[in-house]
Design a protein around this nucleic acid. Structure first.
Length: 571
RNA sequence: GGCCCCGUAGCUCAGCUGGAUAGAGCAACUGCCUUCUAAGCAGUAGGUCGUACGUUCGAAUCGUACCGGGGUCGCCA
């Protein structure tokens, strides 16, 4: 058993026994839990726990006294060299070298598959879902990488994941897309260079798509074009899929809004909403940011969002009878619920924030099934070049595409950057620092640690063969740094587990950075003191250290592959 | 105006969901290459955790108010 579980069990047993001995109620153990932490200071031992601080009130004694009682029991344990109780009531534990060596050999036996002890759930995670009206930009990239990595992490701990993309292939924006393409083709056919109308999508990209379509279908007149309208979306969508593939992202399902929003489905939902008094036909209040001139009062189907604390009731269907974005999303989510997922996760840009509560309220009111809808919002990404923020406007068509970003900094740096920040923080995406090849660039730093491991293993091929036959001892791993490395490695599964629990992959990038730092530091010891080189004069000692290096390399590799970032063998 | 997010070292960010003397990297200063990758390592310096109350044994973390920055409030997506 790895240390975290081991120590938790040991302490738990002691607490349980204390309760029984004193005839005390043990109910609180179900709702209260204590921590086992890696100590960040040498004086605080290898691990420390706050059990006594958390539980003292249930024992009706002071934390320090309780800590002392627990410590006294722990001292019986032969693996524990020293157990100290410190001021407010912390218990600091110092394990023997043998204990840590055994931890490493237990870890080796796991062979890369950790036991997360988690109930598998079936989870649908929807992410990207960019409108097929243009190429992906940096904001999409953030959602894409975050969604994909959360998926991988959830898969790693044992859940069943479906990655899904909702294609908005119906509604206004598609009409506008078609109009834009037709406009460009008209220009080609008539050999004119008319200026784009205001209500069309700007940008060279769609002009090129129009050329492609023109050539592929050898269009001779505008009437012919009608036949190919439905292909237009596919052209754009293929480009988006290509971009995603470049990032290593493959969705399991592409769900089409067109299919979901059949008139049959719309009517069913409309009736259900009306029957359950969640919707009515009425007039929406004029939004605050709209002038009187631009507002026309018209009757339409409204959702009773005021009932749930919203400022005003929100439109489900436009006055003309077309469905709104909100209604379309409702239909899609009902479809997901019908497919019996335990958990629905959506990765949305923060600009969709207003829809979160609305959608959740509507769904929980409509559907009695047992499900959880968790919507994770990603904050903005600012592109920075030469210390200046790049100004972009999708409306004007002058925005930097994800393709261009990848071309400059590469997939690895992009992926790492996008998940190394918590989703609710704005990212300043600085081209210059991501291209730098030093420790200012965290991806590089981690990959470099891996490359160093690999180079040393490459040099020691002969000894590695002996190690693979089981010819090695771990007794020689006694340095403080070696113990730290073992601790960190044996804790990786906890990091992954918490990353999965909170949907926060940045915990993994942070972990990899920390592990790399300790390794670089370990490596550096050899520069100062030759006895501390990994390949030392002593054969057995060297083999011990090589085993450690091998495990570090495997751990780094596991982490990087989980994030779909490459692990270069040399740099 | 309503709602939401952010505010931690000069800069970019962590802080394990309430614990100990708040941590990294960059930038600054100082050491370390006759070779296990110096694309690196070690050290020094740098803080009223936006402000003020409150909750409690204990707050960067929870609550309230305020200040500053951003987002959003469509019959766009």
């Amino acid at each position: 058993m790895l240390f975290h579980e081991y120590l938790k069990n040991e302490i738990f047993k002691i607490v349980k026994k204390l309760l029984d001995d004193n005839d005390l109620d043990s109910d609180f153990l179900k709702t209260n839990s204590f921590n086992i932490e890696l100590s960040n200071k040498v004086d605080f031992g290898d691990l420390s726990s706050n059990v006594a601080l958390v539980f003292s009130k249930f024992f009706k004694t002071s934390p320090e006294k309780l800590a002392e009682i627990i410590a006294r029991e722990l001292r019986q344990n032969k693996h524990m060299q020293k157990v100290e109780v410190i001021k407010p009531g912390f218990i600091n534990i110092f394990f023997t070298n043998l204990f840590w060596q055994n931890q490493l050999s237990q870890f080796i036996k796991l062979d890369g598959s950790y036991n997360y002890n988690i109930k598998p759930k079936s989870i649908c995670i929807e992410f990207v879902s960019a409108n097929p009206t243009g190429l992906m930009h940096i904001g999409h990239a953030r959602g894409a990488v975050l969604g994909d990595t959360i998926s991988s992490v959830l898969e790693e701990v044992g859940h069943n994941i479906k990655r899904e993309y909702y294609i908005n292939d119906a509604g206004e924006q598609i009409k506008k897309l078609n109009k834009t393409i037709i406009f460009h083709i008209e220009n080609i056919l008539k050999n004119t260079t008319n200026e784009l109308f205001n209500d069309l999508y700007p940008g060279e990209y769609l002009e090129n798509i129009a050329k492609e379509i023109f050539n592929k279908f050898s269009i001779k007149n505008l009437n012919e074009l009608k036949k190919f309208e439905k292909n237009i979306i596919d052209f754009v969508l293929n480009d988006i899929k290509e971009d995603l593939a470049e990032l290593g992202i493959i969705h399991d399902n592409f769900v089409s809004e067109k299919n979901i929003s059949s008139s049959d489905n719309i009517n069913k939902l409309k009736n259900k909403l009306l029957e359950s008094e969640l919707a009515y036909y009425g007039f929406q209040e004029k939004p605050k940011n709209i002038s009187d001139k631009d507002w026309e009062k018209k009757e339409q189907l409204l959702f009773c969002s005021k009932k749930f604390g919203d400022d005003s009731d929100r439109s489900l269907m436009k006055p003309g009878g077309e469905i709104t974005y909100f209604m379309s999303d409702l239909l899609y989510h009902i479809n997901k619920i019908e497919r019996n997922f335990d958990v629905l996760i959506n990765i949305w840009g923060v600009d969709h924030f207003g829809y979160v509560k609305r959608l959740q309220n509507a769904l929980y009111a409509l559907c009695k099934e047992n499900f959880l809808l968790d919507i994770k919002l990603t904050s903005l990404v600012n592109l920075i070049k030469n210390g200046e923020k790049l100004k972009m406007s999708k409306r004007k068509g002058n925005y930097i595409t994800m393709r261009e970003v990848i071309k400059e900094v590469g997939v690895d740096a992009l992926r790492f950057m996008m998940i190394s920040r918590n989703a609710d923080k704005t990212i300043d995406f600085d081209f210059d620092s991501l291209k730098i090849k030093n420790k200012d660039n965290p991806v590089f730093y981690v990959q470099y640690a891996y490359a160093r491991c690999m180079s040393i293993l490459e040099i020691s091929k002969k000894k590695i063969k002996e190690i693979e036959k089981g010819d090695f001892k771990l007794d020689y791993l006694t340095l403080y740094e070696e113990k730290m490395l073992i601790k960190y490695i044996c804790n990786f599964y906890n990091v992954i587990k918490s990353s999965a629990e909170y949907f926060e992959p940045h915990r993994i990038t942070n972990y990899l950075y920390d592990l790399s730092k300790i390794f670089h530091n370990y490596w550096g010891l050899g520069k100062i003191n030759k006895d501390k080189k990994i390949i030392s004069g002593d054969d057995d000692l060297t083999k011990s250290r090589l085993v450690l290096v091998q495990i570090i390399s495997l751990t780094l590799n596991k982490g990087l592959s989980l994030l779909k970032i490459s692990s270069p063998k040399s740099m």
